Simulated assay, not measured.
Amino acid sequence: MSAAQAARFVEALAVANPAPKTELDFTSPYTLLVAVALSAQATDVSVNKATATLFAEAATPEAMVALGEEGLARHIRSIGLWKGKAKNVIALSQQLIEKHGGAVPPDRAALEALPGVGRKTANVVLNVAFGEEAMAVDTHIFRLGNRTGLAPGKTPREVEDGLMKRVPGSLLRDAHHWLILHGRYICKARLPECWHCVAREACNYGDKVLWPPGRAAK
């Protein structure tokens, strides 16, 4: 896909959703960091349900450490991999207190040094909390980048680098939201709903599904 075509693709998403935002509930950089850490292999809906009670009790690193792993576990047992996530959230909260004065650092290296925080999580925090032009590649964006030709790659990092090069600079800040929402609700894994995709004309996918299953073309 050419740069011009990539621009048309993302611009179509921008027109359809001019004010995109994350679907995770948060009130601060810290609660965002925790929510994203909990969202690995879990839906945003399940995370929001858990954090509604969790953040009412512990919305700061100090309160989270005081809550402890068992106290945290009471809130997140419905989320996949909750044991490991509870351990990491307490550990990263402790590290924030000890090394960053309880604040979430607006720095990639410092974020990725926190327990359980990888590049994708760091990118979300940098983008959403600090307004950086960062691209967090999850399974939805990885699929979309390859399927559409927008940014093909064998690894999430290759797709990320491709998107950072091809998405117009003026759209980079919000592109992460447009792409993840498009992959989640339109360009789905099993059946892409091309029949109501606003970016269809700029997409290189060769097997577009132009009509809903069971409905004949008119």
Rank of each mutant, 00 (worst) to 15 (best):
A14D: 11
I97W: 04
A52I: 01
P152R: 02
L72N: 11
E11G: 07
A6E: 04
L54C: 05
F130C: 08
R200K: 01
L191S: 06
K49M: 12
Q41P: 01
R77P: 12
L67C: 01
S39P: 13
R119K: 14
L126K: 00
A6P: 06
R119P: 13
V104Q: 07
Y205S: 03
A122G: 07
K99C: 12
A12S: 15
G169D: 15
V104R: 03
A63Q: 14
V65E: 08
G116T: 00
S28C: 03
A7S: 11
K83L: 07
L150W: 00
C194F: 06
G169E: 14
G169L: 12
R77Q: 15
V137K: 10
A103K: 14
T139Y: 10
A66G: 12
L33A: 02
A63L: 12
Q94T: 12
H177I: 00
G118P: 14
K49S: 13
A4F: 08
V159P: 14
N146C: 07
E193C: 04
E193A: 09
C194S: 06
P212V: 03
A12I: 05
W82P: 07
H196M: 00
C187D: 10
K83Q: 12
C187A: 09
V104G: 08
E69V: 13
S93E: 11
K87Q: 12
A16M: 06
I180G: 09
E62H: 13
L32H: 01
A217C: 15
L33E: 05
P156Q: 03
Q41W: 01
L92P: 14
F26P: 03
S28F: 02
T27P: 04
P18W: 10
A122E: 07
T31H: 11
A63D: 06
L92H: 12
I76P: 10
V34I: 15
I79R: 02
V34G: 09
A199D: 05
W211T: 15
K120G: 09
E98A: 15
E201N: 01
Q41K: 00
N146Y: 04
L150H: 00
R147C: 03
A3D: 10
Q95C: 07
E112C: 13
